[in-house]
Design a protein around this nucleic acid. Structure first.
Lengths: 342, 342
DNA sequence: TACTAAAATGCAATCGATTGCATAAATTTA
DNA sequence: TAAATTTATGCAATCGATTGCATTTTAGTA
């Protein structure tokens, strides 16, 4: 693996008896370069297998044309879709993305941010970890002039660009749907309430109950049921109640809904006849369980694209102060068998 | 968004009345710097909020401490797991990864490679697209001194480091399992044969049949059945034969196996009693279909770790020629209900 | 043909960190 | 105490591309 010296603009300049600056300008399509020389330079560069040294260029221009993305886990359907969307959009602009995972750990998230600052990324796109309550690390990046965009799980109090789902409304829609199907004792599986997405989903649930004049029963709201296992446990408790629920809204994920389904199956409860079930986030599998799971699609790929587009758009007015702006995407209720009672 | 000038080693040097070179050495823990000054520099750097400009550093050292990863799609369980594994390992070494997706298109793959060359990545990790038959773009990167590691879908003729699954053996194991369960007319759903992973799986299938003295029936081997839809179609053809198969090995993926299941269900064929089914790659959902799908686990996260570790290991002997080396991971057959006849 | 304006190119500094070599300071040895 | 080492620090070039300003070349005008 001989490191083979790369061709530089100096090599091209020498060959053409030009000044490196002219070569640089030619390559950057600067109007003050003669068309003929421009063509010649381009041709020669090509012949000599020239590739611009982005590092040198970035050093000089102070830009890195790189966007850092921090997510809890890459290998979760929602996040990998968002990333795919971001990549798709940034790629077209000649930008690269650097990916980091926080693994839902605050400490690792801080490290990720530091690495990205280190790399001089132009922008950080983040969905915070479940542990994150303090935001000094994000503020630090912002203070260093790095554009910040939060998505999905956002820290409300931090004034940045944000792209979120309208969780409250989606949740409201889901619960309303359950009510319309004739369910009246609807339980809620909640996620950690320090994350606003879970608070919003709870709010939507509460609002739907109120608007339909249903009582709010605290014994039907289970905290921290945000994995399949925790949800299964919560479901067992719920179904063991004197007056068990007739529907369960697993507001945390389809994995939770799956846990509900399994427990119900084991107890020989028929879904949807005896128990209605609704999940969240439209995982692949929700379509193929038996019964298939009613859920909410978050348009994750589109969300990624939106994030990237937002950055490029805001970049234009980089001279002016960036205003904290929030884009809210309306998720879509997907009704399947697990809740179709009528 | 004021661009706020970052602290440089010059600022530190000036403040301490030192030479920038000493500051640099101190920060890099160079032994020729006095312990006292080293401490002082570190302390001051910290106070001044100094962060090394990686770009400048990379320019000078000629390294980028960055690894480029090219996959067909990020949002596929297998690939996102591999990436998660790579990220996990590279992170610990202070390396970053840049992700690109080829979207299964040859043209886009070439562009990805060019971008990565542009970025001066130290290493490219790639799983080639289904369209890729020519490898000039990869050779080009290699010629430029970029370390290359192929994984999963590899171009055999290209002499690089490789991390693969032992597809032949896994496939052999799966088919052997079907035979042991009493199936004797076993059909094969094949993937595009220009990808060696699919050739190997076919070979494993053939070897298993031979070793058990079963006839090889060409009408039971369906080409290009590598999506759920194509597999469903192939399954319809197979089950419409005069002598239909009693088992189907969907060697391309669990999605294909899912297609098989759906067609079988529609035709009121009982699985596994009347039709055995085996998939590939242990997708999340394969566990929760009814019946659950027998499949093959590829240890994707571990595969990513292996790739990264391989790079760091080979980097040590960068002075010597890199030998083409192949690491083969043995996948594991996971027997579930869809093939358990006995 | 001489002269001005416009177009093209060259010069040299710059981005920030690193590093081989030279020099200065501190320490050891004779 | 002077000489010989050892240890710290400084100097200056370098990585490759970019860019403000100066200079040369070309085109256009009188």
């Amino acid at each position: 693996m001989s490191p083979k010296k790369r061709t530089t603009i100096y090599d091209i300049a020498e060959k053409l008896k030009l000044n490196p600056s002219s070569v640089s300008r030619a390559l950057n399509n600067n109007p003050s370069v003669n068309e003929a020389t421009k063509k010649l330079v381009l041709k020669t560069a090509n012949e000599m297998n020239y590739i611009r040294n982005t590092i040198a260029s970035n050093l000089r221009t102070g830009l890195s044309k790189t966007i850092g993305v921090v997510v809890p886990q890459i290998n979760q359907n929602f996040f990998s879709n968002v990333i795919a969307g971001i990549e798709d959009a940034t790629y077209k602009q000649g930008y690269n993305i650097i990916i980091c995972q926080s693994n839902e750990l605050y400490e690792k998230e801080v490290q990720c941010i530091n690495t990205l600052i280190d790399q001089h990324v132009d922008c950080i796109v983040i969905s915070i970890s479940v542990e994150t309550t303090d935001h000094a690390h994000l503020q630090n990046a912002i203070n260093r002039g790095i554009q910040m965009i939060q998505f999905d799980r956002v820290a409300d109090e931090l004034e940045t660009l944000k792209v979120i789902n309208d969780n409250e409304q989606a949740s409201f829609d889901a619960v309303t749907h359950l009510i319309e199907q004739g369910y009246s004792r609807i339980a809620l599986l909640e996620g950690p309430q320090n994350l606003d997405i879970f608070r919003q989903r709870k709010n939507g649930y509460l609002r739907a109950l109120k608007e339909h004049n249903l009582p709010i029963l605290t014994e039907l709201m289970m905290e921290n049921a945000w994995t399949k296992e925790l949800s299964a446990e919560a479901t067992r408790k719920l179904l063991g109640l004197q007056q068990p629920p007739d529907a369960i809204f697993a507001s945390t994920s389809d994995f939770s809904a799956l846990g509900v389904l399994e427990v119900a199956t084991n107890m020989n409860l028929r879904v949807p006849e005896e128990l209605g079930v609704c999940g969240y986030s439209n995982e692949h599998f929700s379509e193929i369980t038996s019964p298939s799971i009613t859920t909410i699609d978050q348009f994750s790929f589109y969300m990624g694209k939106t994030v990237a587009d937002l950055y490029f758009q805001e970049m234009q007015n980089a001279h002016t102060e960036v205003i904290a702006k929030t884009i809210s995407i309306k998720p879509k209720l997907i009704v399947r068998l697990s809740s179709r009672k009528k």
